Simulated scan of single mutants.
Amino acid sequence: MRTNTSVRGRRSHQKSRHGCQQCKLRKVKCGEEKPNCANCTRHGVDCSYAHAARIEGSSSSSCVQPTSPGDASTMLSGSPGSDGHSQAATAAATDLAIADLELLHHFTTSTAYTFSRHPILQSFWRVEVPQIGFTAPYTLRAILALSALHLAHLRPDQSPSYIAQATIHHDAALKLATPEMANITPDNSAPLFLFSALSTFIWCAKPLKPGNFLLWENHEIASWLVLIRGTGTILDFADEALKNGPLASMFSARARNRIAEPVPQHQILENLRYLVMEDVPEPHMAQVYGSVIDEMNRPFVMCLERNLRLETADVFSWLLRVPHEFLLLLKDYQPLAMVIFGYFCVLLHQLEWMWCMKGWSTHLLSQIYNKLSPAYRAWIRWPIEQIGFLPPR
C-alpha cells in the first residue's frame, strides 16, 4: 500500500546583514528594531548593534593588505584573504591589542619578580595585582606602563618605543585615577593603593637627568610624591579593608620583617641630630628636623645593625611620614634639609638591587654635594663613604 508522504522544506526567509550581535550568535532572524530588537527584549538580554557593526567592519577589512609588514594580523593569520580561515583569523587578530598583551605577559612572567625578594610578595605581584587591575582600568594601565619601562631597561635598542607606550598608559591612568582619589571607598581603596605604589616605581624607572632630585624638580614637589602621600590617606580611611582584603598577603608578609619593639636611636643619626640642632636656633624648625631624623631610625637599625633586608615599603614609608614643611625646605635647597636627605640616600642605596632604583642614590648624592657649600659638604661625608660616591676634585 502506497503512502503519500511530503517532505517539509525549510521555510525561506530573507537574511539580515544588519541584525544585532546577539541574534547573529543565536542564528535567528533579527527584526532590527532599535535600540533593542524584539528578540532581545523577549529574552531579556542586552542588544548591541555597535558591537556587531564593529565585528562586520573587521571582517570586511580583513581582505585588505595590512599597512605594514609588522601588522599583528599578518603575524597571526598568515596570508590575508587566501581562504576563509585566514580571513577569520585576521579579523580576530585585529580585535586584539597585541602590544598590551605582550606587556601584561611580561609583567606576570618577569617584572612581578623584581619588586621584592620575598616569595610571598613575588606571588602577590604576579597573581593578585593583575587580578585587582582587571577591576580598575587605572591600575591595569599602570601595570602595563611599568612593564613597558622594564622592557625598555632590558631592551635598550627598543627603548624609545617602550617608553612611549609607558607614557601613553600612565597618562591615561592618571586621568582615570585622579577623580577616584577624591572619593576613596573600601571598594576602590585596594586598586588606588596599588596605583600609587606602581606610580612610584614608574617615576623611579624613568631615565635619570640633572635637576631631578626624585622628590622635587625645578622648585616643585614631584607629582608622584603628592600621589604616594595620598596612600597615607587611603591607609587611614580603609586600613582594615586593605589588610583583610585583596592586599592581605602583602601586609602580612611585610609585618613579619618589622621590628615590633621600640629601638634606640642609631648612633649615626644621633650624631646627625647633634649637628643639626646646633645649627638651628628656632625651636619649631628644630622639631621639624628632629622628627624627620627620627622617622629614618627604624630602617637604619634594620639594615645597619640587624642586617635585615629592606623592602621598598621600609624605605618609602619615610616619605609618607615626613612633614610637608620639610618637603618645602627641600625644594628650596635649604642646606640642613639637603644634608638629612643625603642620609636618606643610604637607605635608597639598599634598594639598588631593583632595576628601577639603580643609580638613584649616587645621582641624588652628587647633586646634593654640588648644591651644598664646602662647610656643609663635610656633613655628608658618611653617606658619601657608605654609597661609594667619589666627589669631584
Rank of each mutant, 00 (worst) to 15 (best):
P137K: 12
A52R: 05
G84A: 14
S12C: 05
L319Y: 02
F213Q: 06
P179Q: 11
C356P: 04
V28N: 04
I234L: 06
A166P: 01
S252L: 09
L269I: 08
S361R: 03
Q14I: 15
K24L: 14
S196Q: 01
G70Q: 13
G232V: 01
H153K: 11
E305I: 07
M285G: 00
G81Q: 10
G44A: 10
N212T: 04
L176R: 06
Y376M: 13
F251A: 07
L146K: 00
I293H: 09
S199Y: 05
L327T: 02
W125R: 00
V45P: 01
A38Y: 04
G78F: 07
L235W: 01
G388Y: 07
M354G: 01
I120N: 07
Y333R: 09
A286Y: 02
K371G: 00
G31D: 15
T74R: 15
L272N: 05
T231G: 03
C47W: 12
A112G: 03
M357R: 07
V322H: 00
W379F: 14
S147I: 04
N188W: 07
S116E: 06
A136S: 15
H363K: 01
L176Y: 02
L328H: 14
R117E: 13
K175Y: 11
S123H: 14
A72C: 12
A222N: 08
T135W: 00
W125E: 02
S60L: 13
G81W: 11
V28E: 12
G230R: 11
W318T: 07
P246D: 10
F251R: 08
D157Q: 15
G342V: 11
T114V: 00
K358G: 03
Q65L: 15
P335Q: 06
V7D: 09
S60G: 04
R8H: 11
I380D: 08
F124C: 07
N183M: 09
L247Q: 03
D46C: 03
R155D: 14
L151S: 04
P323C: 05
L304Q: 12
R117F: 02
Y162M: 01
I368N: 05
L192V: 09
L242C: 10
E56V: 05
H153R: 10
D187F: 03
M302R: 10
H349K: 13
P69R: 09
A72K: 08
C30W: 12
H266V: 11
P283Y: 06
E352S: 04
M302L: 13
K371F: 08
I387N: 05
A91I: 12
E56G: 00
F134D: 00
Y369P: 00
T231C: 10
I120R: 12
H284K: 14
T90F: 14
Y113L: 13
L242G: 06
I55E: 13
D279G: 00
P392A: 14
S61A: 15
